[in-house]
Each structure stands twice: as C-alpha cells, then as structure tokens.
Amino acid sequence: MAEPIKRKDFLWIGWGALATFVGGATAASVRFLVPNVLYEPSQKFNAGPAKEFPVGVSTLWFKKQRVWIIRTEKGIYALWARCTHLGCTPNWFLDQTRFKCPCHGSNFSTDGDVIAGPAPKPLWRCQVEVVASGDLVIDKATLENRPGIRDKAPYFAEV
C-alpha cells in the first residue's frame, strides 16, 4: 500500500508546480520575443564553388555584392569593400597589390590593413563558410577586423 502523501510534501509539490509555471511562463515570454522570421534583406550570398577562386584577389562579386574574395595558399576570406574612413568604395590595384580608396586616398593591403591614408581601422572581413556542396557562402552581416580573430573561422575558411 502506497504511503499517503504528507501535508508538507504536498505543499512542496504545490509550490513547485507554481514555480514551474511561473518559470515556464517567463521562458515562454522570452522565447516569444525571439523572432523566427525577419524582414531584413539577407546579407548572405552564395559566391559559387570555393575551389574555383584562383589564389589572389577576386573582383568577381565586387560590383554586385561589394566584397572581394581573397584566396591564399591556406584558405579563403572575404573583405567588405567599404573604406573605414568615410564609407566610400575602394578599388583593387593588382600592380600595387593593394586597395585604394578614391575619396581620400586610404590604402589597404590584401589583409585589409591600412597602409596609408586617413582610414583609422582595417577593412572588415565577412563571415565565410564552405558549405557541403563546396560553395562559398558569405555573410556580410557578421564582420570582424581584429588581427588574430579575423584569421580564424568563421572569418576564414580553409579550402
């Protein structure tokens, strides 16, 4: 025969039920506040097969997406073509291996570091990912420019 439930235990269960309800309701409210769909224009795009980018700076997506895709011996990363000075669009110069901003003359290396001019910070790198199909997916919403952090995933993808 089962023990009859004691008054003390019953109260604990009762309070526990209330606490669980309150906690659950709070959690549900927080969950409610996390949107599942967004109306933001997507900052992600598929840049095509990662392996097809030759070593060097590719301007393939420069016009359409405002990014340069840079392949090194080790892997691949994407630079956002927006000068950190006043936001103009720099251009790529192969013979000088650098990006130069036409507005105020800032120069950036292929790493994105400032070589000359008024820009205060290195160029931003976008989040990159080589998906299962081998395509390179670039997300311009997540940016990084600190040396050390920018050289690792998710701002650098091995190819």
Binding site: H104, G105, S106, N107, I115, A116, G117
Partner: peptide
C-alpha cells in the same frame, strides 16, 4: 607611413 597623392 606612405605618402598619399591628392585627388587624381
């Protein structure tokens, strides 16, 4: 630092 040319 490198010199920066004025507007071209």
């Amino acid at each position: 630092c490198e010199p920066v040319s004025p507007s071209g």
